[in-house]
């Protein structure tokens, strides 16, 4: 599944990084602890988190993640959006909390 397909399926908001919308997604990882994501997330996963600052994009880029999904109507900081555009890694948004959006994505990947 590509990032834009996930956006369409789940009605996600696209904040930035539009050039990366055709990245292929391998799965997902849910965590708000940066060292956990650094150590355990896998390439091309979508990262579900409530962290909105710049370091999120540094990690997303170093780990070659497909996209970042901000939960519960949270919005990225301006410099975070800028980094997302530079790296072509989309930042997406949802009104749902992490548990619910992760559940939906899990279902999409296992149907």
């Amino acid at each position: 599944m590509k990032v834009f397909e996930l956006v369409e399926e789940l009605g996600l908001k696209v904040f930035s990084g539009h050039k990366g919308l055709d990245r292929e997604i391998s799965g997902g990882y849910v965590s708000d602890l940066l060292s956990d994501v650094m150590g355990n997330a896998q390439e091309a996963q979508v990262w579900i988190t409530l962290q909105v600052h710049q370091n999120v994009m540094a990690i997303a880029s170093l780990k070659d993640l497909a996209a970042v999904i901000l939960v519960s109507n949270l919005e990225p900081q301006e410099n975070t959006k800028r980094n997302s555009d530079d790296e072509s890694i989309p930042i997406l948004g949802t009104s749902l909390p992490a548990f619910e959006i992760a559940g939906k994505i899990y279902q999409l990947f296992n149907r």
Binding site: L33, L34, S35, M38, Q51, N55
Partner: peptide, 11 residues
């Protein structure tokens, strides 16, 4: 900010 999990050195 999400740092401080105590996972850095083990990583």
């Amino acid at each position: 900010m999400g740092f401080g999990a105590g996972m850095g050195l083990p990583n």
